[in-house]
Design a protein around this nucleic acid. Structure first.
Lengths: 351, 351
DNA sequence: TTGTACGCGTTATCAT
DNA sequence: ATGATAACGCGTACAA
């Protein structure tokens, strides 16, 4: 507030609703009604108010409006990482939709579980600041869930289930089944799998469900996972590299590797190339997601529509926001997936 | 507000400062002072207030506090895209730092220039909502600049210059010079270059500066850009692919390609492989950035520290926020860069 | 050290 | 259709 008004630019102080009222010769109540397009304002008055507001460069204070109305126009987006393809695409989709309706996005990056997360999702920081919450594939612990639920605002999740909350996602069992079935159909029998860590991803069923899909597909064809060829990574490229390096030390190698994420699959590709293995001749590699960099790696995968999921989540949240009163029922949107064949997979070589 | 209080959970209504005051047997003023750690509160009183606040689950209303103080605790981050590596890493760095000081991040994704941007950076939406602004490599047009400047809050930019604003960045001329010099040192003489579009990136000197660095390096060695081998892309993988496909239709091919971004370089790699060219034997390819997927593509590049730039930008903004009153001087933080040699580059083959 | 009382800028209720 | 006025919840002079 000590910032002196610059002598060379615009109005020294922002104008308030009172100034507009005086300028237009009406009351503040009328200004408020006119500017927000409410009923019961004569066309002439509305025009006069609009002109006055324009002349005075009037911008309503969102703070004051929020204090009175209880609505902030802000949606909290809870996301583990800001730098990973999956999450940023979710955010992008959600933001695009929410912005159309004048909502703003407040970001809460909570990072990997167990870190300093309690500092991020803090009662103090969240309190009365948000109209709604989007939880984007963040594996919240019970305390965090309770914190969010205590806010008493609509919550929509993507990629996980929260009791009573609307939800968007894909069929993870099916997507993994599709991927594994493709490798089996090509003729592979010794297939390695690197999934997510079910112990870490307690609230995110992704790791569990994709493993289930993999197992289903194998069982259907009388196959099973070789424990020496199955492990879990952290969903990242480096996790995939680490998995592959362990794998390559085994006596018998698989003829194909399925990774639960494209990023891990790309890590496997990298490690394989480093070891001099020819993909797909010596080893087929397949992922799940269709990451933006999958095509440049010629990676066969099963595509999910990530941006669309964010978009749908935003839509569900808006619905909940406009329908005040408790929701009639819980809604679920499950988007489809699609096999994308590229050059990283082939039938096992005769050798 | 019609949402009926759930019978099975917490307090029906959030408690206000008045409730805490009554519970602790003091005035609201004392509660305010005690809870915010101000002086002139006796230890006993402070403890009693703290206990009462705890018991009532009291959380101060940020809205009301903002209305009084004029501070919102919110920083606006203006960014072109939410889904690109460079921007998300900047955001991540900035958010990590700003959160330490209790600030929140409000995202403004403005997209490519000329789209529907005016709808995003709107006077109405920005007004009185932000304590400060971070402009992350967004090429604002004059109207948008005026809009932000009119907010009268501290602004820090990354990757561009705004009059009077603190700034973080790298030496783009130097980084491009380093890259081109590396190719020349390897023995290349016919080197193609795909840069950014200087016509589109008016306010971002990146395209211009990197081209300047490229030209400097060439001139120093008596070389120059073949206009048939130089063009501009849109910084993306697809832009790189498109450039390479045009390039490969030329009569004489270069022995090396430098791209102004790793994403474009990766596109060039992809197109080269599709065409059956062996990298680096038939063609050396080099980028700038050290994108997270560059090592999986074995791409030689010049690394810049992106997350660190976001972090530094946050730091500059905090400084400006704490030092009220007009800034004494304009500050610039220029971070270093580093050549990263991988397998996509080699001396030109004898053929 | 603590309490009283006013104001922040808007919206909503009730008159008119 | 419009105006007067009371909240909204907190911070902070100023008084005690």
């Amino acid at each position: 507030m000590k910032r002196a008004p610059a002598p060379d630019a615009g109005p020294a102080a922002a104008s308030r609703i009172h100034d507009v009222a005086r300028e237009a010769g009406v009351s503040t109540a009328t200004v408020s009604r006119a500017l927000r397009g409410l009923d019961r304002v004569s066309p002439q008055t509305r025009a006069r108010v609009a002109a006055a507001a324009e002349a005075l460069q009037y911008v309503p204070s969102p703070t004051a409006a929020s204090l009175k109305s209880g609505k902030t126009g802000v949606i909290g987006v809870v996301v583990p990482f800001l730098t990973r393809w999956f999450f940023t695409n979710l955010m992008d989709g959600a933001e695009a939709l929410l912005r159309q309706d004048g909502y703003h996005i407040l970001v809460f990056t909570i990072g990997a579980r167990g870190d300093q997360r309690t500092q991020v999702l803090d009662h103090q920081l969240l309190g009365k600041r948000l109209d709604g919450i989007l939880v984007l594939s963040a594996d919240l612990d019970p305390h965090e869930v309770a914190l969010l639920a205590g806010l008493r605002v609509p919550i929509v999740t993507v990629g996980l289930d929260l009791p009573g909350c609307d939800r968007v996602g894909i069929d993870d069992v099916h997507v993994a089944d599709t991927a594994m079935s493709h490798l089996i159909r090509l003729g592979h029998q010794r297939i390695a799998y690197v999934g997510g860590n079910p112990a870490e991803d307690v609230h995110i069923a992704t790791a569990v469900n994709r493993l289930a899909g993999v197992t289903h597909a194998l069982h259907r064809h009388g196959l099973r996972l070789d424990t020496r060829h199955a492990s879990h990574g952290d969903w990242t490229v480096h996790g995939g590299v680490a998995f592959a390096e362990r794998l390559f030390r085994e006596q018998t190698l698989p003829t194909a590797v399925l990774a639960a994420s494209d990023e891990m699959a790309i890590g496997v590709l990298y490690a394989a190339r480093r070891r001099g293995l020819d993909v797909p001749h010596d080893l087929s590699v397949m992922g799940i997601d269709d990451h933006e960099m999958s095509f440049t790696h010629e990676l066969t995968t099963v595509r999910q529509q990530v941006r669309e999921q964010g978009w749908e989540a935003g839509r569900l949240l808006l619905d909940a926001l406009y329908a005040d009163g408790p929701p009639a029922s819980r809604r679920e949107v499950i988007l489809g997936t699609e096999l994308v064949e590229r050059r990283s997979t082939a039938p096992p070589s005769a050798s």
